[in-house]
Design a protein around this nucleic acid. Structure first.
Lengths: 127, 127
DNA sequence: TAATTATATACTATTGACAGTATATACAAA
DNA sequence: TTTGTATATACTGTCAATAGTATATAATTA
């Protein structure tokens, strides 16, 4: 996996946001959709491309697909996420905002029964 | 200038190599061409695109165009160059190699009279 | 078994980046 | 003023990435 492949990947703001969110913890496709407000098909394709690159992993829980950062996390991705989270630009602020929205989402899931199966909840950390 | 513009730029290995070289010091177009072994038109277009982005600057010395990193150097570019120069991948090794080739080029210019005008030499650091 | 939910894939059209060729410009030297 | 050198731009064709629509698959529930 070359550096240029990584850069092509994170050159798409939406893919960068996905990596930023997954670095904070596991999420299922539908919650990623909700957080980023993108159509299902687009999210699915972007996740597939990053899985192909080896940046993320997925596993099924019932009808749900949980996505997580592939371990060990790609160092170049890590370096850039760390930098961008601290930096000040439109995209950088969005990354910080996304992490806050993720917190709120998890709180909501915790309060809403049957929003996701229990095994999923454990991994997401909502229960 | 958004992060995604920077990533799109450095997602091209050749543009990354150019930035890597310019970060080490001023170079003229023809020497960049020689170091990277690319046709003139390609080099010229890539430099133009990076100038448009605000990453590099140029000024004319006679028939020569000297390119340099725009000051202050873009921080995201800096972070990535610093990381890649230390890392171990095909592209990273190339960056290190390029810097060595640059040293040798400058030595050669120093020994060859009239390879470039004196004012250029001063900036490149070859005399 | 049929219906529903969550997700993935196939297909198509469009767009943007890039390479290559040709030509233009800017300056220097004769 | 012509010639040469260094560099930039215009133009064109090609290819890869993307979005959107439709459909398929996989698991769950009724």
């Amino acid at each position: 996996m070359e550096a240029s492949d990584i850069y092509k990947c994170i050159a798409d703001p939406q893919r960068l946001r996905i990596l930023n969110l997954l670095e904070a913890g596991v999420l299922c496709v539908c919650h990623l959709q909700e957080l980023l407000e993108v159509p299902q098909v687009k999210m699915s394709k972007q996740l597939a491309s990053m899985k192909k690159l080896g940046l993320v992993e997925s596993h099924r829980e019932g009808t749900w697909m949980l996505y997580a950062m592939a371990e060990p996390i790609n160092r170049l991705v890590g370096v850039n996420l760390r930098y961008l989270r601290e930096a000040d630009c439109t995209e950088c602020n969005q990354l910080q905002l996304d992490l806050l929205r993720r917190e709120r989402l998890i709180l909501r899931i915790r309060q809403t029964s049957n929003e996701c199966p229990e095994s999923v909840c454990q991994q997401i950390g909502c229960c």
